[in-house]
């Protein structure tokens, strides 16, 4: 009885995992969306076109259902935009030739929001292994693949190292507050940066030796740990992203040609 319930629970978990896996999008499709958005958002300088990009990218960001992370990211971005708007207002007061209007700030701010909407799903849903597999499937040259893979693999490790270093400094009585960073910036940099530099050198030495011992070389053949699966959902995402880009470009050239309050 117990065994059967356990096995059904295990099967249930596996099925849930399988369902989750099939529902997840491939990293390459998310990378494509990010890349496309970064190009199109620069090309489009009209409010109409940017609004289409923003609406579509917001739906994409909401689709991952990480509302708290999205809310925090938007809060941070709003604060940054507020500071930028204040600076612009101050400059317009000092230099009257540079007029200040919120509508003219809308397009640069929407560009930032569009990029946030496409980067968050990539950052929050893709695991390091999936990124490495995606990088391998791009068929990059050996001299670009190896450093790229090492870079992706070690970004979380270095984050963890910095956290450990700061905890160690706190234990030793150093104050790592915002005010202290202002009062003694050089000392703070030295305390945080020197261990990171030594850690980088040691890691690169160890990994380099390991890579040589494993026989990694330009002509070598690599077999990825896990294979990536491109599904219909990925094709649909790529198609929708391309359609949105075309629609935004159309709106930009069709209705965005007349300047509004100094925009364009």
């Amino acid at each position: 009885m117990r065994a059967s319930s356990m096995s059904s629970r295990l099967v249930g978990t596996d099925m849930g995992r399988d369902a989750q896996k099939s529902a997840a999008l491939d990293t390459r499709s998310r990378m494509f969306v990010t890349l496309l958005a970064s190009v199109v958002t620069i090309v489009i300088s009209s409010f109409e076109g940017q609004m289409i990009l923003f609406a579509a990218s917001l739906l994409y960001a909401l689709s991952i259902r990480r509302y708290r992370a999205l809310f925090i990211a938007y809060g941070f971005m709003a604060a940054m935009m507020g500071i930028a708007a204040l600076f612009t207002f101050g400059i317009s007061k000092v230099m009257p030739s540079m007029t200040f209007s919120l509508t003219s700030l809308a397009v640069p701010f929407l560009r930032g929001a569009v990029m946030l909407n496409v980067v968050l799903p990539l950052a929050l849903t893709c695991r390091v292994q999936a990124l490495l597999t995606a990088l391998k499937s791009l068929h990059l040259p050996f001299c670009i693949y190896i450093p790229g893979a090492v870079m992706i693999r070690f970004i979380p490790t270095f984050m963890h190292d910095i956290r450990q270093v700061s905890e160690t400094l706190k234990i030793r009585g150093y104050d790592l507050s915002f005010g202290e960073m202002f009062r003694h910036p050089l000392m703070m940099l030295r305390l945080l940066f020197t261990p990171l530099l030594f850690r980088s050198l040691r890691t690169s030495e160890e990994l380099g030796i390991a890579a040589e011992l494993k026989g990694l070389e330009a002509e070598g053949r690599f077999v990825p740990f896990a294979s990536s699966a491109w599904t219909r959902r990925d094709t649909l995402l790529v198609f929708l992203a391309a359609a949105t880009a075309v629609l935004a470009l159309y709106c930009h050239f069709r209705w965005g040609a007349v300047p509004v309050h100094g925009m364009r």
């Binding site: 190896i146 450093p147 790229g148 893979a149 090492v150 970004i155 270095f158 850690r199 980088s200 040589e212």
Partner: peptide, 21 residues
């Protein structure tokens, strides 16, 4: 493209990660 050894490529990758972080 094949002039760098694996060890040198690893150094470049590690430093790229360290600088980014």
């Amino acid at each position: 493209l094949s002039r760098w050894s694996a060890r040198e490529l690893v150094v470049i990758g590690v430093f790229a990660a360290a600088s980014k972080v």
